[in-house]
């Protein structure tokens, strides 16, 4: 599997974000699909996160201006959902499932292993900015527990050895 790293654009470059033609086109497309402008907010934030890697204040302001909301309101929405990054994320965000099925199939041990291997606690980033560890609730893949989601990809039926190999691979490609 070739998980794509998150490339977060630095804050300074996003200070005065304006949407280019491609973004504008996709926003217009989204606007057509929802009954109100406000309802389009979350898909537009997703779009921005895909594009810029995270939701910098400058991006939030641009979204607010585009959709006619106040920046505070948009920031409130963005901070409500943990899957929106309001701080620049690491290249690879390791989301280790902590819920029952994974926990009994070795998820706990996986999480402990990740903590000791990376030297960080859930919610933290490694100093080199390559890995970020998050403990999450059920990823809906109980049949293939334990599961770790890395960026947009699921890594299933994991053992400590397989996970190590994945991390080595990702580290090598970063």
């Amino acid at each position: 599997m070739s998980t794509k790293p998150i490339l977060s654009v630095p804050t300074e470059q996003l200070e005065n974000t304006t949407f280019d033609a491609t973004m504008e086109e996709r926003i217009l497309e989204l606007l057509k699909r929802y009954p109100t402008t406000r309802a389009t907010l979350i898909p537009v934030l997703w779009l921005c996160q895909e594009r810029y890697g995270w939701l910098a204040p400058g991006v939030i302001r641009a979204v607010a201006d585009r959709l006619g909301e106040s920046p505070a309101y948009v920031e409130g929405v963005a901070t409500f959902y943990t899957m929106f990054y309001t701080k620049p994320p690491a290249k690879f965000v390791l989301q280790a499932c902590e819920t029952l099925s994974c926990a009994v199939c070795g998820g706990k041990e996986l999480l402990h292993h990740l903590e000791s291997r990376l030297g960080i606690k859930p919610g933290e980033k490694t100093p080199d900015g390559v890995f970020q560890l998050v403990g999450v609730q059920c990823l809906g893949a109980c049949g293939t527990a334990p599961v770790v989601q890395i960026n947009d990809d699921y890594y299933e039926n994991l053992t400590i050895e397989r996970l190590d190999a994945v991390l080595d691979d990702l580290k090598g490609r970063s």
């Binding site: 204040p57 909301e69 505070a72 309101y73 920031e75 409130g76 409500f80």
Partner: peptide, 19 residues
Amino acid sequence: TAALTYKSRGNSAYIDTFN
């Protein structure tokens, strides 16, 4: 002005302005 909002959620929600 819609200047105030909740940030974060649940137990850790707090009042703040944009940025």
